[in-house]
Structures are given as C-alpha cells and as structure tokens.
Write a protein that binds this DNA or RNA. Sequence first.
DNA 1: TCAATAGTGTCTTTGAGACATTATAGA
DNA 2: TCTATAATGTCTCAAAGACACTATTGA
Lengths: 222, 222
Amino acid sequence: MPFTRVELVVLGVREAKLQVLLALREREPDVGKWALPGGVVRIDLDETLEDSAQRVSAERLHRALPNLTQVMTVGARERDPRSPWALSVVYASLVPPAFDPEAGKRIAALQWRAISTEMLGAELAFDHAELVRTAIDTLREQVAALRFPLGWLPAEFTVPELMRLSETILGRALDKVTFRRRLQAMALLQAVEGKMRLEGAHRPAQVFRLAEGDGHAGPLTV
Amino acid sequence: MPFTRVELVVLGVREAKLQVLLALREREPDVGKWALPGGVVRIDLDETLEDSAQRVSAERLHRALPNLTQVMTVGARERDPRSPWALSVVYASLVPPAFDPEAGKRIAALQWRAISTEMLGAELAFDHAELVRTAIDTLREQVAALRFPLGWLPAEFTVPELMRLSETILGRALDKVTFRRRLQAMALLQAVEGKMRLEGAHRPAQVFRLAEGDGHAGPLTV
DNA sequence: TCAATAGTGTCTTTGAGACATTATAGA
DNA sequence: TCTATAATGTCTCAAAGACACTATTGA
C-alpha cells in the first residue's frame, strides 16, 4: 500500500492579497525549503479522510480548518523521497483574517506568502506548487459562481466587504451593480434590519448574514 | 497505511440512455451484488495513480479507458469490509458506443445499466451509488460547458450526433441554434469539406472533426 | 409531393457590464 | 460644502432561448 498523506492548502486574504500558508521544513528531505503543511493518514486515529486533514491541521497549526474542500489526489512513484511511492490527498481551506496558526510538530516556522507566478515557479518543495495552483483554480471557480466557502464568511458582513474579498481572490475588478444583482438573484443574503457598518467618512453599509436555507443550489438529481 | 484502491465509473450512452458499467461480484463481501469495477493500487506495478486505473481496467475489462477523469477520493474506517480502513480514488471515463468489455479477473459478469434514481437508491455494493452520482455530476458539468471528454468523441461526427449525445448525458433537451452558436464561438470544430453523412430520407449532415489546437481554454494563470 | 431531419434567420428574453445618479456619513 | 463610499437607476451589449423558415434527401 502506498505511503498516504494529506496536504493542506490554507489560503487567506492578507494585506489585500491572496496568500498561502507555508511551512519551513525542519527535517530531511528538503530541509529549509518551504512546503505545504501536511501529514500521514493514520488509520488508527482518523475516522475519515477529512478527519485526517483536521488532525494534521491540529498537529501542525494548532488550529481547525473551516470548510475543507477536497482538491485532487496525486499519486506516483518517486514523488516524495521519503517513500518509493507516495499518494497525497489535497485539501484546501479559505480561512478568515484572524486565523493565526502556531508552528507545530516538524515545522520550523510558518509564513503567509502572497501568491505569484514567481513564488509558484520553483521555490516550493516536492510538487507543491502544482497543488497550490489547482487549489486556487478550484477556489476561484467557487467564488466566481458565488458559491462562497461557508465557514470562511464571518457571521455578519457587508456587500462591499464580500466584493472586495472576491476581487482579491479572483485577481480582477468586479462590477458592483452586477455583483449585487447576482447576490439578489441567488437569495443568498439576508439583511440584518437596522444594522449598519461604519468605516469612515461616508455612507455606512448594510450588514447582512447568510440567508436561511443557505441558498446554495443542490447538485442535479439523476 | 490504508488499503488503497481505484474505482472506475465507466459511462456510456446506449439505447439513447446514459448507462454505467457494473460488475457482478464473484467474491465476498457482497457476492452477487453489483459494484463498480475496481482494484488495488499496486506500487510495484503502477508508475502513477492513473496507471493504476488503466491497469485495473485492463485486468477487469480487458480494455483501456479513454479520457480518464479523477472524480474524488473517499477514505474512511469501515467503508469496505475487506479492510478496517479503505481509501478509494474514483476515476470516470465516458466510452464510445463500440466499447464492449469482457468480464475479467474476479468478475462474474459485466452489465450496462441505465442510470436512474431507483438504481442508485439501494442496489449497489459499498458506497458505490454515491460515487456514480458524483461522477455523473462531474461529467454533466463538462458537457454543459462544451468541454467534451476527448477520446470519447469519434474522429468524425456530425453536429446533431454531438447534440443528441449531450442531451442524453444532461437529461434535458437543448436548443439547436444555441448549441451551434456556442460550438462556433468556441471554434471547437472543423468541417470535413465535402463530406456529408446520410442517415435516412432527409437532408444529410455535415461531418466535422475536432479543430487543431483543440480549442479548449486553459486554466487561469495566477 | 410528402415526411423527416439539417441548418439558418431573427425576434425576444436575460444577464452582465458601463456609467451616471442619489444617499449618507465625517471633516 | 466637500470628499468618500454605499446603493440604485438605466442604457447598452452579448449570449441564450423560442420559433419560423429554408435546404436536401428518400419514398
């Protein structure tokens, strides 16, 4: 049976940029290189694969991850020097701004790093650059379709806040009329009556929360 | 390390219905039940996960699968009675009408079965109904976006043929003007000059092949 | 000429983008 | 009053759907 791991692509928006959480490797192989936090699937400890991802997150980051999304699974000979044949299930999570993990087991340091072509070019250990790329594609598809990763959203937020976050993730400007129209059409939001948010010398914004029944369309039935 | 398998969701259009290829189990557990063909990942034989899927297909079906698409990975305790903890990577493939596999190793019989809510309800072994459902959702997304699984398409075909297949897969009628307009916009097809296909007492259809450069848009760059 | 399907023309509807306008706060 | 951002009105444009019409075959 292959050496089986989960790898975590923890994404967040910091300083108005989409960033990924990287771990400085403390052990061979690739000591001193930056890699995704990850760990081995423990069939004695984990009930499900997603539990593996959460346990690994607890060990490495001392945090639970909201809204885990399975991105892909890679498996091949000589992917990872620790084993002749390694399989990794990749999970992504978009975490809120306040998410500040502590470096845990086997990790010399943690660092948020802005996504860029150069950063993904050649710096990361193993095949992790490719995993990050795919995770971002998956996240962008979700955000473009207004299927926001729940659990990432704070309980209460304003439309401009949601739009700025979307713009950062998608890497392009959005039109506010269109954005509001689409939100309206999906009946995704519910205004918190009478509650406004002030953020400067200008008109305050209406505060919303997710609508009951979550508004997310289910998959097609057969 | 978990007991690691690949499961194959082989889909085809037969008798104008979307069907899935099921295998009658010859061994415990679930003898006599229908299940997806699948097999164990062999790190001594397989270079990559996709190679595992092709080897399993060769062993079980005596056929190679075109256009393998990874659908999802499931892993949990007590998913599969053969092992305390089982992980399965699910691959889907849409095969051409002429694809007629032979029952191979560990398989008493193979059968094409039309997709239906009842069929997916309770008949299949293990958690395979859920895997089929997800594979179909993935396939439908591809076809709805006109990202046809290549390799499934015969070298030459007509627009009405392509549209009928799409309708069968999506389970709904399509508008032919819209369908042609979208194909045109994607520059997906190339007419085979002067070649027509006759299929009855009516106007013959223009024969097409896939355009050079395949027309499929690449993923976003970071 | 008729039936059947391939292929096109075109009107309507819908959703997205662009851009102007109004609303509401603090300075 | 001025500036900044929230929120809305509305024009335009593009894609999709609806439906009629023409084209081409065999019977």
